[in-house]
Structures are given as structure tokens and as C-alpha cells.
Amino acid sequence: MVERGKRIRFKFIKTGELKYISHLDLLRTMERATRRSRLPIRYTEGFHPRAKIQFASALPVGIASLGELMDIELTEELLAGQAMQEMGGQLPATLALKEARVVPPGEGPPMSLVRGASYQIRVEPQDDLAQRVDGWLAKETIPWTRQQKNKVRHLDLRGATSKLEVLGREQLELLLFFSSEATNVRPQEIIASLKLVPLEIVRTAIWGQGVLMEPLEKGIE
């Protein structure tokens, strides 16, 4: 087992009010944390050097997460645990690091490994929640258009859904497929097409097929 390495993968959470910061805000926050920690971070070449930090997936604003993934690149080999301790000390509790693992050389960026993500969703209570979801799942395709500034994207919500389970009158568990080619479906869109009002959405894990670290060991292919 590789203990030391120049690339470390962290699993971290994004909870509390920090779910309201954007992906760009998160990147800036992590970059500043690496600088505060004085970890030997590798910077990009060029006019405006940026710390080499890569995320597995961008989390939409307003969604909390219990299992985000990020890689940092170092200029010298470090123990994963040591890097986690130093970097973790520079982050708020709502962005705490949970696990760390050295990524072996040659391994692709975390983005390339992602195959999906699971969510816990709380909605305004509905007595017919189960029927609604059953009807929804019975369909072959559920076309959806997303208006993005001046672009319109056509998505298939049903095709992107691997699992949608009802837990009581107000809880749902959702597993979405991600693909590197197409635009990824957002959990809010599933909720909207079910005509439900979301109260809280938490991403519970990112799924992949690699054998690197929890939860990427569990593939969904």
C-alpha cells in the first residue's frame, strides 16, 4: 500500500451554510486553506499561478454534501494522514476533511472516475408520494429542458436516474448517473418534475468504479 505520495485525494463535507457557496468560492476557499497550511502545493505554470486542486464534481449551490472528493498535488511526497491534518486544520468544521488517500501516479483526475452521485432529499410531506414516484419510474423517458442563459439543453431525467426510493411521506433517496459526455441532471430537476417542493437536499456520496477510496470503490456500472 502506497503511504506517501505527491497526489492526495480527500473526502470532505460541505454542510451548514457553506452549502450556499458556489463551486468557484469553494475552489478559492480550498486554495487559501492550502496556502495557510503551507503544504508544498504545486502551482500551475503561467501568468497567474493557481494551486493544483481538482474536484470530482461541482455541487450545485444550496445542496449540502457528506462526501465530496478533491485531489491536491504536491511538490514533494507526503503521508496522506499528515496532509489531511495540516490542511484540515485550516478549514471550518462545515468543510471538514473526512478521509485521505495517496493517489498512485498515472491515475486520472477525480472527475474522470465519477459515475454518479446519491442524494437524500426531504420534501414537503405528500400523502401520495409513493404513487407519484412509482408512476414517474414507470416511464421510459422523461424529457426535460434546462434554460441556461442563452442555451437550451435537452435532458432525459428518467434515463439519468438509477434509483429513486421513497422513505416515508417526505424522504427520498436518489441515485443519479453522471456521464462525462452529456450534461448531468441535477436533483432539483427530478424534484421539480415530480412537482414536489424540496426542503433539503444532501448529497450522500459520489460513486465511481475505481478502487481508490471510499466511496469510489463501489461502482454503479
Binding site: Y20, I21, R32, P92
Partner: peptide
Amino acid sequence: WDAILSRVEKPARYIGGEW
């Protein structure tokens, strides 16, 4: 408050708790 934050355009300007 949580519901309001999820509706406004730039919720991050209201959260405080800065480093």
C-alpha cells in the same frame, strides 16, 4: 432563514462565519 437563503440570488453574501 434557510428557505430564504435558498431563494435569493447570492446567498453567500449573507452567511458570515468567515475564516
